[in-house]
Design a binder for these strands. Structure first.
Lengths: 200, 200
DNA sequence: AGTCACGCTAGCACAGCGTGCTAGTACAGT
DNA sequence: ACTGTACTAGCACGCTGTGCTAGCGTGACT
């Protein structure tokens, strides 16, 4: 146990241990016992802080994602345009992770999909979607302005990226095969590369 | 045991039992012991035919899926590879359009997202997703074989395409801005072009 | 000072899981 | 008749998530 770990509460040690394990193997299982042992804590103690394994995984994942991004990143020309765009897109996904993603989608579905489709509901949903797409289009326009992205149909590009984000978001809400960190990153890279190298 | 079941081999009985269990509860876990008992077979026997649980799930799901989608299209070399892949991907989306898409997603959500996340539900969803991705990977492998697609990481490519399909599927269920057909076609083309022109 | 309550920790018990393994059976080919 | 192969049965191991009780310290109230 390091000095840092001594000064951390059990809860923090557990999350830290889980984060480390995710770092070593992005597809780590984060089993109760393994994390507890790694954190130098009993399973009972761990289960006091995280009553279910899901709670544990969510907490660790949230910690990992929290160390990531902010919005004005798109203007930071010291990093490649590609990374900036990816970070910003990730920003959209950040609020939804694990159980939160599930709750978020449940809310969305109950709000927009379960009730019969009135014009009001339609308009509300379209407003949300438009706002999301507007942000993406803005990021793209910034890249175009600085020459990192060829002038072209940003609306179409943004719609493509939003579709990918929708897919990723759904996949976050549903159980993931392995760590969504890895596959999600790959997919995001693929999509962004596709947009950045698009002729028109 | 019914007369039919008596005349079936153990292997068939196992798959049939698994399919029935999936039919009764789409979130069934298909555990080795449960399926074996249901099929009136010992676990050892089951494990002879299906060495791993994964093999069992895949076999059952393949059986279920085989009653739905046709792969013929991908082999029709009279049309460009790009169009064929797009058609096959569209094939996945076809069952869900408009109100049907809404109903389909409602079912999916009620099955996999509303109930609390058990290992059973997890496994069931993952199996479905895996089977879908397996199909896409197969289509890609056909294109690779005929030289229309560079040899590369088809798993990653398939995951990307599945994510796009997920996004498109969601967007079909929710209210659309204007004609979803055009934007959907554009997005699908973008995604497919992205994959077909990928270096690795 | 006593004691009561509560946050926290430790650790065991249980049922379930996937899987490795061996022993036994039935039937084909030689 | 002998042998090999396909199949079946079933046990054992180590793992999982979770429920549970017992003990520890600390702070508040009588």
């Amino acid at each position: 146990m390091t000095a840092d770990e001594q000064n951390m509460s059990s809860r923090d040690r557990i999350i830290a241990a889980g984060a480390v394990m995710l770092g070593e193997d992005a597809g780590a299982r984060l089993s109760v016992r393994a994390v507890a042992e790694r954190a130098g804590v009993s399973t009972g103690s761990l289960r006091h802080h995280f009553p279910t394994q899901r709670a544990l995984q969510d907490a660790v994942l949230a910690r990992v994602y929290d160390e990531v991004v902010s919005d004005d990143r798109i203007h930071d020309r010291t990093v490649p345009a590609r990374e900036r765009l990816i970070d910003c897109l990730r920003l959209v996904l950040t609020p939804t992770v694990g159980e939160q993603a599930r709750q978020a989608w449940l809310t969305v579905f109950r709000t927009f999909l379960v009730p019969e489709q009135t014009d009001e509901i339609r308009a509300a949903y379209l407003g949300m979607e438009r706002e999301g797409q507007r942000r993406v289009e803005y990021w793209l326009s910034v890249l175009v302005e600085e020459g990192a992205l060829a002038d072209g149909d940003n609306t179409r590009r943004a719609r493509f990226l939003c579709t990918v984000l929708n897919g990723l978001s759904v996949e976050r809400a549903f159980p993931a095969e392995e760590s969504i960190l890895r596959s999600e990153a790959e997919t995001l890279h693929t999509a962004v590369d596709c947009v950045l190298s698009s002729p028109a």
